[in-house]
Nucleic acid binder design. Structure first.
Lengths: 118, 118
DNA sequence: ATTGACCCTCACAGCGCTGTCAGGGCTTAT
DNA sequence: ATAAGCCCTGACAGCGCTGTGAGGGTCAAT
């Protein structure tokens, strides 16, 4: 399957598909004329990438995490050391949430003040 | 007070103080020799900027919001139209939180799978 | 053979800050 | 007058993607 088709199937832009390849996340074969040629496995990999990205991982992190995940989203053996990475990631998310909840407090405080002033 | 002193007092880097000026958030006087000369009022303004920034506002937003806030963090009259802006901001924060909570779900799902696989 | 739709690579731009460096003046004390 | 320490402007770099454009092949149908 050529890049345009994959892009439509996956909802990932052509630009990004090429970028994923550049970063080593996808490695499609090439046709004689140099066109990228993706197979079904590649599509499944792409779904995994989207999943990991939706968990807030950047591409560097995904790159090390990716080999550890099967298409059905379960993890297999040789990746025990990634538990730490996962905990780090969760910690980052928690910190982000804490920050946002603080932001929200400040904003709501403003709103309260406005309504009590006018 | 010169920029270095303000930087230490406020905890804001010299680079950022100059940037705030460039963006119109601070307007210090100048000495005869061209040095920035900040007064106490400027320091108070800076505290307000920090507060707004901690609420997740970017400088563009702060720029329109700033004139509406007194040093004691209360809002005054002529800024009613900013209620919308505030609601928008809160909405953005809520969306961000929702996104993060989804991320966390995905991550915890991974963790669960790892622990049930090994 | 021509056209249109698709593909290729390379590379610049932009987000919203923030650091850092270069090249140069000012101030104060010795 | 010399040195240390501060200040000035201007400009480039980097984060982590993502879009877009240039310049140029390929493929399928007509």
């Amino acid at each position: 399957m050529k890049i345009g088709e994959l892009s439509i199937k996956s909802g990932v832009s052509i630009r990004m598909l090429r970028y994923y390849e550049e970063r080593g996340l996808l490695t499609p074969k090439r046709t004689a004329s140099g066109y990228r040629d993706y197979d079904e496995e590649e599509l499944r990999t792409l779904e995994r990438i989207k999943l990991l990205a939706s968990a807030g991982m950047n591409l560097n992190t995904i790159l090390v995490f990716l080999p550890c995940i099967r298409g059905d989203q379960h993890v297999f053996e040789p990746c025990d050391e990634l538990i730490d990475l996962l905990h780090d990631q969760i910690k980052m998310v928690n910190e982000e949430v804490a920050k946002l909840s603080h932001s929200k407090t400040v904003l709501e405080h403003f709103l309260y003040d406005i309504e009590n002033t006018k």
